[in-house]
Write a protein that binds this DNA or RNA. Structure first.
Ligand SMILES: NC(=O)c1ccc[n+]([C@@H]2O[C@H](COP(=O)([O-])OP(=O)(O)OC[C@H]3O[C@@H](n4cnc5c(N)ncnc54)[C@H](O)[C@@H]3O)[C@@H](O)[C@H]2O)c1
Ligand SMILES: NC(=O)c1ccc[n+]([C@@H]2O[C@H](COP(=O)([O-])OP(=O)(O)OC[C@H]3O[C@@H](n4cnc5c(N)ncnc54)[C@H](O)[C@@H]3O)[C@@H](O)[C@H]2O)c1
Lengths: 207, 207
DNA sequence: TTGAAACTGTGATTTAATTAACAATATTTC
DNA sequence: GAAATATTGTTAATTAAATCACAGTTTCAA
């Protein structure tokens, strides 16, 4: 059984707050506390936790440590997953720098670019490969996720190559909608759309 | 009446495809064509277009020019909106560079940072101001939208300052959930969560 | 000019997600 | 240790979003 997308997202968010709690020495947390940290309700939190089949033993709230472990069990892959960044421009560099070392179960281990001046350059310890070596490097390193930050006009072609290379998860930051086979999970973030949406609601606030 | 969020997003996306069509000299488009360009259905497209009260006169599909204008009327503010980027690090720089000149109705006209070495520096024609001048510059330039790319630990404090300065639309790229008054529209993009979601669905594909 | 084909616009239905409501149970208070 | 309180887990109700189904054009082909 797979969880609803929104629940998966919230679990990821909860986990970060929970880890924060652990650091602060907080061992138990109530649903309404966790809700308050994110902007949602206690019921929503309990519903999400119900989905993952965890339940608190005492009425002292959830055991933070246990809950973190259960979430990790759901979200993380045992051995971690390997990730590549495609297109090492402004955004690609920012993302690479940002993610390296951030999540122990998600390792950015390669970047790719067409620009020959970028090949072999190392960003935050991650080496840049030429596109011609895409399939080879993906296979050799069992890379399953690609973050795509190439220019819009290469997006469609690039996505096809990534699928062909064996990628099964794709984060698309270009503002070009992509089509991928059902077995590849696609997440698209369109920053222009987000900004235009903000602008719309600034112009026309919800009463 | 305000439109559903998802409809607003799709309208933004449709518009870009439609502008592309215009460039290619395509004057009319069917709902199923537009649907195919994005990953959704013809009914969804028609439903969205119905929401904005446009209807095609002929059965040659929608008039692209007209539709673009109707969408612009919905999404854009007459005189455009002014935008500031807060925190000119890796991401802030990428975003600023990216957006300048991109959308004529959304003008990035200032950036802000605490780092004194960044003050007065100009990125893509946009000047960086010290935080101490936030309110002044926001008011003087009628900035209504802020894109927040500051480190996580300044996020909450910064959001409060932005609201206080009069911002009514906020895009939050920090991975810290924020609370803002109802009258401020908040859009949060949590890249870690997105990546973890992709990882989850790579690990546990849907059915 | 008639009949089929191609699309649109929209009520009705379905599905997914959220929220409400509350019984069950542990904890605290007296 | 009985009553009051706090919190969870879950069923039921609500809301929001997407999809179905189809009547009503318009166009086209003969
Ligand atoms: N910069 C941003 O903040 C931002 C925001 C939203 C969306 N985006 C999108 O992200 C993408 C990249 O933006 P950017 O600002 O980093 O652009 P950029 O021009 O700085 O970087 C693009 C990089 O991709 C490389 N490249 C070009 N063709 C390639 C290919 N076929 N395969 C691999 N690499 C290739 C280029 O050499 C360059 O290094 C664009 O599609 C843009 O629409 C960027
Ligand atoms: N880089 C990415 O791709 C990426 C991805 C997802 C999320 N984020 C988030 O975006 C934020 C910025 O990331 P980054 O990689 O650009 O970091 P960065 O360290 O490169 O940049 C942060 C910038 O903010 C400035 N700053 C610090 N405190 C400030 C304050 N109180 N007010 C204004 N400016 C301040 C710093 O001087 C610096 O210029 C972080 O919260 C990060 O979690 C970044």
């Amino acid at each position: 059984m797979t969880l609803p997308e929104r629940t998966v997202e919230r679990l990821s968010e909860y986990r970060r707050s929970l880890l924060q709690c652990l650091e602060e020495g907080k061992t138990h947390i109530f649903s309404h506390e966790l809700a308050e940290l994110h902007h949602n309700t206690a019921v929503q939190v309990r519903r999400d936790i119900m989905f993952i089949g965890y339940s608190s033993t005492q009425r002292k709230g959830y055991d933070v440590r246990e809950l973190v472990d259960v979430i990790a069990n759901i979200l993380d892959s045992e051995k971690g997953l390997n990730v590549a960044v495609i297109g090492v421009g402004n955004l690609g560099r920012a993302v690479t720098t940002y993610f390296v070392g951030k999540r122990s179960k998600l390792n950015i281990i390669a970047t790719f670019d067409v620009d020959t001046t970028k090949i072999d350059r190392v960003i935050s310890g991650v080496k840049c490969y030429p596109l011609s070596r895409l399939k080879e490097v993906v296979e050799a390193n069992q890379i399953s996720i690609a973050i795509m930050t190439v220019p819009a006009d290469s997006a469609v072609e690039m996505a096809a190559q990534l699928v062909e290379a064996g990628i099964t998860g794709l984060m698309n930051f270009t503002t070009v909608p992509l089509n991928v086979p059902r077995e590849v999970y696609l997440d698209e973030y369109d920053m222009i759309t987000s900004l235009e949406k903000v602008a719309y609601f600034v112009k026309s606030p919800r009463e």
